[in-house]
């Protein structure tokens, strides 16, 4: 495994696993006892490391280059996917993908941020940072979903909106705002799943939903720990404490009443077993979807309103 694809706290686990692999190759029944012992040790080590992850380590996991991305979930979760392109105004943004598909025996619309693997794909995907045309493509697909009464599944995984002159020029703020407004009133069930990084407004633009689900090692934050450290501490090195203070982990958000469910990841994180991860996501999504499709439209919208209306911390009437 390439070094830069490995997080520091993963290294001892992976090294031990490499050793086990080596022993297995050498074979010989004499090694069986030692192998089993080593495997137990590897499991224990992993449990130990992962049972006390810091907020910053969770941030790193949420950004893991080998973590499954939106298209990885779409291909494992859905059948008959037809990707749709373009916002019909300006262009097609590779940082957001979407289309029609079948999920759990139901026709749905899927939309998500898309990160890339390797330099070339990352350039094409702009590292998962959408421009206005990305939000507007998502908006077009959501309106399509409403027209044809298709539930919407969104997958959130972005460092945030792209901070560039062109994005500002074409109305980044308005594009994000418009999605929030339209999603608030779409008469179809919406489930948003944070699969990796939920970065600020760029994430929220796909995030107004009837259910907000988060993977165990995903994060959702108003600002990146780096940005927060540089603004509030005036020191970019303070990312660990900034991550801690921001309360951005899936577990923190559950406590704050923001997400509805945290989906457990396979041991070592989603990237260690993408198939198992996809199965859990599929199971959780179909359970929530079955609940939501049974709710009458007016009731669905009233509940969605109450859900967001209630988020916040204030005192006094």
């Amino acid at each position: 495994m390439a070094d830069r694809q490995t997080l520091e706290f993963e290294r001892p686990i992976l090294e031990l696993e490499a050793k086990i692999e080596e022993l297995k190759r050498l074979g010989g029944s004499a090694l069986q006892a030692e192998l089993r012992q080593l495997e137990r040790r590897a499991r224990r080590l992993q449990e130990e490391v992962f049972s006390e992850l810091s907020a910053w380590q969770k941030v790193q996991l949420s950004r893991h280059p080998q973590r499954p991305f939106t298209l990885d979930y779409i291909s494992r979760l859905t059948a008959d996917f037809f990707e749709l392109h373009g916002d019909r105004h300006f262009g097609d943004d590779g940082a957001i993908v979407g289309g029609l598909a079948q999920f759990s025996g139901m026709p749905v619309v899927v939309i998500g941020h898309q990160k890339g693997r390797g330099t070339k794909e990352n350039v094409r995907r702009n590292f998962g940072m959408p421009r206005p045309e990305g939000y507007r493509k998502a908006l077009r697909l959501m309106e399509l979903a409403a027209r044809f009464q298709r539930p919407i599944l969104t997958f959130i995984d972005t460092p945030g909106a792209y901070p560039g002159i062109d994005a500002e020029e074409r109305g980044q703020a308005e594009a994000i705002a418009k999605n929030l407004e339209v999603m608030a009133r779409l008469p179809v069930p919406i489930i948003a799943t944070v699969i990796g990084e939920g970065g600020s407004g760029g994430a929220l633009a796909l995030g107004v939903a009837d259910r907000i689900l988060m993977l165990e090692y995903s994060i959702y934050s108003v600002i990146s720990p780096e940005g927060c450290a540089s603004i509030l501490w005036k020191d970019q090195q303070r990312v660990e404490v900034a991550a801690q203070e921001l309360k951005l982990s899936a577990q923190d958000l559950r406590r704050l009443g923001v997400n509805d469910e945290v989906i457990q990841e396979p041991p070592g994180g989603a990237h260690r077993d993408p198939e198992a991860m996809a199965r859990s996501v599929a199971e959780t999504l179909s359970r929530h979807l079955a609940e939501l499709v049974a709710i009458p439209k007016a009731e669905l919208l009233a509940r969605r309103y109450q859900k967001y209306r209630a988020i916040g911390a204030v005192r006094g009437a």
């Binding site: 407004e181 608030a184 009133r185 407004g201 600002i223 704050l256 309103y305 209306r309």
Partner: peptide, 23 residues
């Protein structure tokens, strides 16, 4: 913009204000 010291709760105020406006 959003108030960093309220973390995700401040981000969610964007949604809260906008769902109210949408009505």
């Amino acid at each position: 913009g959003a108030r960093m010291q309220e973390g995700i709760l401040s981000l969610m105020q964007m949604a809260k204000t906008t769902v109210a406006l949408a009505r």
